[in-house]
Computed example of a mutant assay.
Amino acid sequence: MDLDWATLVGFVGMACIIGAYAYLTWQDEPNPFVLHITNLVGAALLTVSLLVHMNLPSLVLEGFWAAIAIWGLAKAMRSRRNVR
């Protein structure tokens, strides 16, 4: 296994996504901004890795993962504005 820069970036992205899921599971009231930003960063980092080491199904998955994170952030921002 070649641990080049793209693989290391992918591992950091994977850690972000797993960390976000753990955070969601452990917190009774998770902060949606922490959750979705962490997921978005993880998806972006994994996408960089996948552009170097192409795996099309995983690349498509990360596209959906990023889109869902962006949607979650937009929803959290709208919710925050409505509270004020």
Results as ranks from 00 to 15, higher is better:
Leu46Gly: 12
Met14Tyr: 08
Ile70Glu: 03
Asp2Lys: 05
Val41Arg: 06
Trp5Gly: 00
Gly72Arg: 09
Ala66Val: 04
Cys16Arg: 01
Ala6His: 14
Gln27Asn: 09
Ala44His: 09
Ser49Gly: 14
Arg80Thr: 09
Thr47Ala: 10
Cys16Ala: 10
Gly10Lys: 01
Asn39Lys: 07
Phe64Ala: 07
Cys16Ser: 04
Trp71Ala: 13
Asp2Gly: 03
Ile17Ala: 08
Met54Ala: 05
Asn82Lys: 11
Ile70Met: 12
Val48Gln: 02
Ala66Asp: 06
Leu8Asp: 00
Pro32Phe: 10
His36Phe: 15
Leu3Pro: 01
Cys16Pro: 03
Phe33Pro: 00
Pro30Lys: 07
His53Gly: 03
Trp71Val: 07
Val48Gly: 01
Lys75Ala: 09
Asn39Ser: 08
Trp26Ile: 05
Thr47Glu: 03
Cys16Thr: 05
Pro32Asp: 13
Met1Cys: 02
Thr7Pro: 00
Leu61Asp: 08
Val52Tyr: 06
Tyr23Met: 04
Asn55Glu: 11
His53Ile: 03
Val48Ser: 00
Ala43Arg: 04
Gly72Val: 11
Arg81Asn: 01
Ile70Asp: 04
Ala22Gly: 02
Met77Asp: 12
Ile37Met: 12
Ala6Lys: 00
Val34Asp: 00
Met14Glu: 10
Asn31Asp: 15
Lys75Val: 08
Thr25His: 10
Thr7Leu: 08
Leu51Tyr: 13
Asn31Gln: 12
Ala69Gly: 11
Leu46Arg: 11
Asn31Lys: 14
Thr25Gln: 08
Gln27Ala: 11
Arg80Lys: 14
Pro30Ser: 10
Asp4Trp: 01
Arg84Phe: 05
Ala44Val: 15
Asn31Met: 07
Thr7Asp: 00
Ala44Trp: 14
Ala76Arg: 00
Glu62Asn: 09
Ala74Gly: 03
Asn55Tyr: 12
Gly10Tyr: 06
Leu56Lys: 06
Ser79Phe: 15
Ala6Gly: 00
Gly19Asp: 04
Val34Met: 05
Val52Phe: 06
Ile68Phe: 14
Phe11Thr: 01
Met1Val: 05
Tyr21Ala: 08
Val9Gly: 02
Cys16Asn: 10
Glu62Trp: 05
Phe33Asp: 03
Thr7Lys: 12
Asn31Trp: 03
Tyr21His: 11
Ile17Glu: 13
Pro30Gly: 09
Trp26Val: 02
Pro30Val: 10
Phe11Pro: 02
Val52Thr: 06
Val12Thr: 10
Ser49Glu: 12
Ser58Gln: 14
Val34Arg: 05
Gly13Cys: 02
Trp71Gly: 05
Leu8His: 01
Ala69Lys: 11
